[in-house]
Design a protein around this nucleic acid. Sequence first.
DNA 1: CGGCATCCGTAAGGATACTG
DNA 2: CAGTATCCTTACGGATGCCG
Lengths: 114, 114
Amino acid sequence: MEKPELFGICPYVTAQKVLTGKWSIYIMYLLSDGPVRFNELQRRMPEEMTHTTLSRQLKVLEREGLIVRKEYQQIPPKVEYSLSEIGIKFKEVLSVLEEWGNEYIQYLHTRKDI
Amino acid sequence: MEKPELFGICPYVTAQKVLTGKWSIYIMYLLSDGPVRFNELQRRMPEEMTHTTLSRQLKVLEREGLIVRKEYQQIPPKVEYSLSEIGIKFKEVLSVLEEWGNEYIQYLHTRKDI
DNA sequence: CGGCATCCGTAAGGATACTG
DNA sequence: CAGTATCCTTACGGATGCCG
C-alpha cells in the first residue's frame, strides 16, 4: 500500500523540504538581522554566485513564505528582503544550528581520515 | 577576488551541506531513540524508497560521522544504525526543528493561495 | 538595480538486477 | 537480511544575455 504524503503533516518532512535548497539556511541567516537589499545579499553570500541563482533561491523562499520581498517604486530600483513572521521564528532553529555546526566543525578537526 | 572556502569554518555553510541530503533529517530522527536495523529503517521512512537509495543515504551520513554502522557477524546478516556522538548532539537541532516545523504547518493552513 | 528567459552540465535520486 | 553495481532520469544550480 502507498504511504501517505507527509508534507504539511510531519514536521521533519516539511522542514526538510524547506531546507534542501543549497543556500536557504545561509540566506535566512543573512536576513536575521533585518532587511537586506538584493545586491548586498549577493555580496555577502559565502560563495560567488550569479544573481540569477540568488534570484531563484529568493523566489523559492518567498513562495514558501519564509521571506518577504519589498519593492520600492523608484529609479534606480530598490528591493529589500526580510524575514516573514514564520521566518522570524526560524531564527531559533538558526541559533541551535549554529551551535551544533560549530561543534561539528570541532569534531571534524579530531578526525584523522578523509 | 575569490571567496574563501567556508565549509569547516562557517557553522551555517557546514550545517547546510550536511542537511542537503533528501532524507538526512528524517533518518536522524528515526535513529534518535536508539539503534534501528536496515529494513526496519526502510519501513519507517515517510516515502516508499528502494533499499539502494536508503543505503546510499546511510553511507553518506556515516562518512560524515553522524551515524554509526554496526554489523553483527551472523547469518542472516544484521546491521544496526545509530547516532554517533556528534549525531546525538544533533538531537537538539531536531527538537527545535520539530517545533518550528509544526508552526510552519500551522502557517501553511492559514494561506489561501497555492 | 534587480530582475527574467533560456540553455546547459552535473550530481543526486530512483529502478532493476545480482550477491554473500 | 543487507547490501553493491549499473543504468537511467530528473531537478537543480550555474552561465549568459536581455530588459524595465
